[in-house]
Design a protein around this nucleic acid. Structure first.
Lengths: 204, 204
DNA sequence: TTGTCCATGTAAAAAGTTACATGATTCG
DNA sequence: CGAATCATGTAACTTTTTACATGGACAA
């Protein structure tokens, strides 16, 4: 079974969904930690049905084809449960950090501009998260119950918020380091000394 | 050009490498933000050579085939430079958070055990990072120069450290929430009240 | 002499992205 | 009446993973 299969089962464990619904959920909010296009979801649902992990009920709806509501089966539920806490070793993939690793190749102004644009993007993501968090606080009871899916959803949201906040702080740290460095044959020392302050307590 | 292509060019920009060397680097330390198997690297190097991004020099070495040292070309250098600060929108993929989203399906003890095992893994990763950081502090001068590749490498390392630290803190936060919740028909209240303390200031 | 590291490749399969295709409803 | 949303699928392509394959050097 693929990770995507488990991702789908995890969503269906909370409530029945159509393939279309799942595709939407895979954009947001689950999309902040996993994504999939509908072209990947529909075949996967068919496979999950073959394996008895989900069952489909034809419902009436628009369009040329049957509309189906998928439901998790007891076998499917057992499968996700076993997967959730099975051994995990993550493969990290951050194109952002890959870019950062190449920042030394750019003139510092360009490096600075890049970091600022990324920082801005993370700020807007933080705003999105903040709005989502507000909806959780309305259902405080369920959020506290570890057997409610809201508990788990809220936990991932908090992770996202923390992650974004820290990334912004890291951008600031790096921007500061970028500004701090002055080539020995520096241009106008007066311009910097006005705002200088104590250059002291630096790295580590 | 693929992301992997740029990842390779980024490494070659610092110094010439063999395919084997690149494969090693793609495990650690770059492996903490991007990975690739040698079976992906060798064909990619051939493609980069076709496109004039790298040039290969046959060197003598063991084994049945030619050993080649790859070097970045001026065209290759321009290509990475342009890529580094080109617009970026990351696709998030965290299997860990996908698992967390399914934690509500498990009995709390199992959820707890899972979080603890992950926490432990992140602790060991933190130890690895700490050792790597020590090697940077020996070359303090280059680390401060934004045009040195050590500057960029150190920046990504700091990001990794920050990320892991926060993840550990988040695990603690969630473990605490998990422990805090008591089903109404609770078993032995005396056992918990001994260590209780103020249950007050909770979520948000 | 058995195992690990050096060193480079190919093949096959799985996963993910982008593009093509169909057609109803609903809103401006 | 055109555009967006609902709704489901297939095809082609790219990227990533896993497995197969070869053979020298060197250390336990």
């Amino acid at each position: 079974m693929s990770t995507l299969g488990y991702a789908i089962l995890g969503l269906l464990a909370a409530q029945p969904q159509t393939g279309y619904d799942l595709a939407k959920l895979m954009r947001a909010p689950i999309g902040y930690m996993w994504t999939a296009h509908h072209s990947q979801i529909y075949p996967e649902l068919a496979r999950l049905e073959d394996e008895g992990m989900v069952s489909a009920a034809v419902i009436d709806g628009p369009g040329p084809r049957d509309n189906k509501r998928y439901q998790i089966t007891p076998a499917g539920r057992r499968a996700v449960q076993d997967w959730v806490d099975s051994p995990l070793t993550e493969v990290a993939r951050s194109e952002f950090m890959l870019r950062v690793r190449g920042l030394w190749l750019l003139p510092p102004e360009r490096a600075r501009a890049f970091l600022l644009s990324q920082r801005e993007w993370y700020e807007s993501r933080l705003a999105t998260y903040a709005m989502e968090e507000a909806t959780f606080l309305l259902e405080a009871d369920a959020v506290d119950d570890p057997t409610s899916y809201l508990f788990a959803e809220y936990a991932t949201l908090r992770y996202g918020i923390m992650r974004v906040r820290e990334t912004i702080a890291w951008c600031d740290w790096l921007l500061d380091r970028l500004d701090r460095f002055q080539p020995i044959a520096g241009g106008s020392p007066a311009a910097t000394s006005l705002v200088a302050g104590p250059h002291a307590a630096d790295s580590s």
